[in-house]
Structures are given as C-alpha cells and as structure tokens.
C-alpha cells in the first residue's frame, strides 16, 4: 500500500510539472512545440500523461498532440541514459569517418544507434548535422559540442 501511495504521489507530482511546463505556452505561436520542449527539459523525456494534459490545455485532440510528439526527432518517450551522445551521421561527417565512429561506439558501449544500453549508462542517437561540417566529424556529448571527434574522445568525455 505504501508503495502504491508513493507512486501515486510521484505521478501527481509529474502531472503538476507537466502542466506547469505547458501552461505558459498556451496561445503562443507554436506554443505546443515550445511547451513540449519544456516538459522534456523538466522530465528528461515526454511522459505519456503529457498527451492528455496538453490536449486539455491547448484545446485540441489527443491525436493531434500525439502526432506532434511523434513527428519531431527531439521528443523522447523514455528517459535517456546517464550520458547522452548525439553523433552526426550526415554526409560531411561521413566523408571523414563518421560511419567508423558509429561502429566504434556501438562496440565500445554495447549499444545500438538510437538506443540506451542495458545499464542505462549511455544513449547514442544519430543527428543529421550539427553545423560543424568544416571540422567534421562532430558530436554532442551531454550538451557539449565536440568537433574532429573520435570514439576515444567520446569515451573520455563520458568517463570524466
């Protein structure tokens, strides 16, 4: 019983956070997308409850909210690992070895591109261009941009 109450309390807390993150953007141009970003900033991902709460607040259907969340690559439906790596896999980075780095990272951390490892230590996602094409290959590790990157540098970054 105690556990159940705790999880209910947690859920209510989560709902409150979601509502707070969204409510300031109702009526704003493109407010749903901005609101969803704030939900993700607060929660680390976009929790399922967001669909119902956003639909009520923005006065649109739940299908529309779900449609927006699923359309944009930025929105995640699960918490990422402790470290979040985005590796650029677009052409300019390919021309200087991005594919090899991708293979290296998958080996090193035993995780597939787009997934989180079993220990929830690291999430590796592809990104299509960070605008660092003149000093490729590029990656973003826990929000930090790194140019002329390789697998070792990413490993050093997440273990430091």
């Amino acid at each position: 019983m105690l556990d159940l109450d705790a999880s209910l309390g947690e859920r209510l807390g989560m709902e409150k956070i979601i509502e707070e993150a969204l409510s300031g953007h109702v009526g704003e141009t493109g407010g749903l997308i901005t609101g969803l970003r704030h939900v993700q900033e607060r929660c680390g991902f976009v929790p399922g409850e967001t669909v119902r709460i956003a639909a009520e607040l923005f006065n649109i259907s739940q299908a529309e909210v779900r449609g927006v969340i699923s359309f944009y690559a930025d929105f995640r439906d699960a918490k990422p690992g402790q470290h979040h790596v985005r590796l650029c896999v677009a052409e300019a980075c390919q021309s200087v070895g991005a594919r090899a780095i991708e293979a290296d990272l998958q080996d090193r951390f035993a995780v597939k591109m787009g997934e989180t490892d079993a220990a929830e230590f690291i999430t590796i996602e592809p990104v299509y261009c960070l605008g660092l094409c003149s000093c490729a290959p590029a990656a973003e590790v826990d929000g930090k941009l790194i140019a002329r990157v390789d697998g070792q540098r990413i490993a050093d970054e997440v273990s430091s």
Binding site: L32, I33, L36, F58, F71, A73, D74, V127, Y128
Partner: peptide, 27 residues
C-alpha cells in the same frame, strides 16, 4: 521579432512545412 526553436525535423526547412511547425503542428 521573436525566435522559435524547432524540434529536430529536416523537412521543416521546406517553407510550407516550416509554417505548419511554427503554428505548433506536425511539419
């Protein structure tokens, strides 16, 4: 003037998709 931040969709560089997105919808 204000800045609107997208959410990771290449297609939103297409002008009509961009406008849909700026209205808060799927691009």
């Amino acid at each position: 003037l204000s800045v609107f931040i997208g959410a990771g969709a290449y297609i939103c560089g297409e002008e009509t998709s961009l406008l849909e997105s700026l209205e808060g919808k799927r691009g």
